[in-house]
Simulated assay, not measured.
Amino acid sequence: MKYLKSKKYNNEFVKENMMGPNSMIILEKLLENVNFKSNMRVLDLGCGKGLTSIFLAKEYGVQVFAVDLWISASENYKRFKSMGLENQIIPIHADATELPFADEYFDAVISVDAYHYFGSNETYFDKYLSKLLKKDALIAIGIPGMKSEIHNRIPDKMKSYWEEEALATWNSCDWWKNLLLKSTSFEIKKIQEMDCFDDAWQAWLNTDNKFALEDRAMIKADNGEYMNLICIIGNKK
């Protein structure tokens, strides 16, 4: 049975709080070969409505700092409190380039369906994020991407579905590898396509969220040809 951890959670609760492809499924796949210790401090960067933070706290017993720019800390705090996790997850409203933490504070950083918004450039990791991580800290990123670079040859059938702003941050595994190789502090362990694309997306498309309703036609048109999910695992040098 796939996604044994993710399936523990109330389906209606998860559907209500999804903001895109099921982040719990993505995170479970992302961390399937990763070990955590309960005393670790974990930065959940771009946590949305906190599903990934809840998953980290419940499944691994770690202390989570749940950071998001779009969802308020107060809203997320209510959600965490409803799950009995108000003392284990600290909700924070902050921009990814203005993170209010001490240097070398975190044992790990996790980012699901968010890192591409702020990290798809040569400066972000080294300038803003690296200093907050301890040496050898785990970096685990799950993001939407493309099977190959497509920006200059967008298929006609997809042009009406892919917004220019979103498409600018969707890149291939090779693109991300080339970008992160330029970093002085990111040690790459693995960059590869994830095999949970269909499951994560279908869970999202089955919700009544207005954005999910719009995405149904896009996924149908794509039909597995272009889009993917990308796993990036590394350590802070």
Rank of each mutant, 00 (worst) to 15 (best):
N11T: 12
N11V: 12
F13W: 13
F13L: 03
V14W: 04
E16N: 10
G20M: 01
P21G: 04
K29W: 08
L30G: 09
L31I: 01
L31G: 04
N33A: 06
N33C: 08
N33R: 05
V34N: 12
N39I: 01
V42C: 04
L45M: 10
G48Q: 01
K49T: 15
L51A: 00
L51V: 04
T52H: 06
S53Y: 03
I54V: 08
F55D: 07
L56D: 08
K58A: 13
Y60P: 12
G61F: 06
Q63G: 13
F65R: 09
V67R: 01
V67T: 07
V67M: 04
V67D: 02
D68L: 03
W70A: 12
I71C: 02
S72Q: 12
S72A: 06
A73N: 11
S74C: 11
K78W: 12
K81F: 15
G84M: 09
E86I: 15
I92C: 06
I92P: 08
D95I: 13
A96H: 14
F101S: 09
A102Q: 14
D103W: 05
D103N: 14
A108H: 01
A108P: 00
V109L: 03
V109K: 05
S111T: 14
V112M: 06
V112G: 02
D113S: 09
D113T: 02
D113N: 05
F118W: 11
S120T: 11
E122W: 09
E122K: 14
Y128N: 10
L129I: 07
L129W: 01
S130F: 03
K135S: 08
K135M: 10
L138V: 06
L138I: 13
I139L: 11
I141C: 03
I141T: 04
G145A: 00
E149T: 12
I150K: 05
P155G: 05
D156I: 10
M158G: 02
M158I: 15
K159L: 07
Y161A: 09
E163P: 14
E164D: 07
E164Q: 11
E165R: 12
A168W: 11
T169Q: 06
W176I: 10
F186G: 03
F186M: 10
E187D: 13
K189C: 15
Q192Y: 08
M194I: 02
M194C: 02
D195E: 06
D195G: 01
C196F: 04
C196M: 06
F197I: 01
N206G: 05
D208C: 10
D208E: 13
A212M: 09
E214G: 11
E214F: 13
D215E: 06
R216W: 02
R216V: 03
M218Y: 15
D222H: 13
N223T: 11
G224C: 14
Y226R: 07
I230C: 02
I230F: 04
I232N: 03
I233S: 07
K237L: 14
K237Y: 05
